[in-house]
Design a protein around this nucleic acid. Structure first.
Lengths: 197, 197
DNA sequence: GTCTATAATTCGATAGAC
DNA sequence: GTCTATCGAATTATAGAC
């Protein structure tokens, strides 16, 4: 079945007939990378989950690294926080991150892969640099301190994700999301806006 | 050269002649697990670093998992903190952890492995349960809240180690250890002793 | 105790028929 | 676009000579 009925939708994405296969592969890849990390997430397993042939993964994405790059295009959607009052940005950030983490497996995938794969590490560094750092630059008093403050925020946000969603410490999972926000919100707020100690 | 001159030292460790090989293997294993994680840290590479034959590793430790178990016997030495005043335990904990992390590769190894290997995850959970939790029980006001407060501390301590020593975010590495202590000390102190929000 | 040789898998990647 | 078949390399683990 060829895509016959499309003549002019220049800005709209051209719906190729292979898009379904493509997205199925990517969804399966995210799941596997999140559950197993880079090394143990095999192309064969991804293909099995997507109910296609392993060689299709190679055809679509060229290599395992190409598959990872395509599967994890992480947008933290931090500009959504642009309109919260300056003194509430800590709570908002924590709440936003927890929602992000729970609504998709992409963050778990990139964290798990980032710990054992060099390309994954570089990806995490880029996300920090391009998405977290600008927020700190905008919020914190002295722009020169922005990198340090952003790094402190990242340490707490990644740390809670690590204990809650990757290592799954029982007491970390037992906390309700509102409790985590109430505890960590002031911490992140302080890292961003409090005078340096 | 056989160990001839030992007849009675019952409590003292019997210095077998193969101990040197054994410790060389373990040191190499820690290094490899810390640098590469579980999957990419091969027995062959460990043996090469220790300048022995790969089959010796199997003979000494039975399997790759046995090697990991033997290589990472993590003692956080937290009882050392028993005598610091209650209101300074936050700073002391952060300082202690940073020293631990910088003086050996064992913590990096167990964290990296814990993220992608189930046995490693279980090891990290055990360390949290047996070493971190008791400190919280001793310090925090309501013992019933100890697990939650210990989990919060772990999230910040593991988070800063993650960004500093594993992912190596540039701004996280640029911070001096004293700066990290000054920023995170109050955080951990609050997680342990401040009234619940 | 140490080493050689190799078994038994598993993986990423490729070639080519249909 | 999809699949079969397979290559070449790497791994853990074992068997056995010395």
């Amino acid at each position: 079945m060829t895509a016959t009925t499309q003549q002019n939708q220049p800005p709209a994405p051209p719906p190729r007939r292979s898009d379904a296969t493509r997205t199925a592969i990517l969804a399966a890849a995210r799941e596997r990378f999140a559950a197993d990390g880079y090394e143990r997430a095999t192309i064969r397993a991804v293909a099995r989950d997507a109910r296609i042939d392993p060689s299709m993964v190679m055809r679509y994405f060229g290599s395992k690294e190409g598959l990872f790059d395509a599967a994890v295009a992480l947008d933290l959607r931090l500009p959504e926080l642009a309109r919260v009052p300056r003194e509430e940005v800590g709570r908002a950030l924590v709440d936003h991150f927890l929602h992000l983490w729970e609504e998709s497996e992409e963050l778990t995938a990139v964290l798990r892969v980032g710990v054992t794969n060099e390309a994954g590490t570089e990806r995490l560094r880029a996300i920090f640099r391009d998405q977290m750092l600008p927020v700190a630059r905008q919020v914190c008093p002295d722009p020169e301190q922005a990198p340090a403050r952003a790094a402190l925020c990242a340490s707490q946000l990644l740390g809670v994700a690590l204990t809650r969603y990757v290592l799954r410490f029982a007491p970390a999972q037992a906390l309700a999301r509102e409790e985590v926000v109430a505890w960590l919100g002031p911490t992140v707020q302080r890292y961003l806006t409090a005078p340096a100690p």
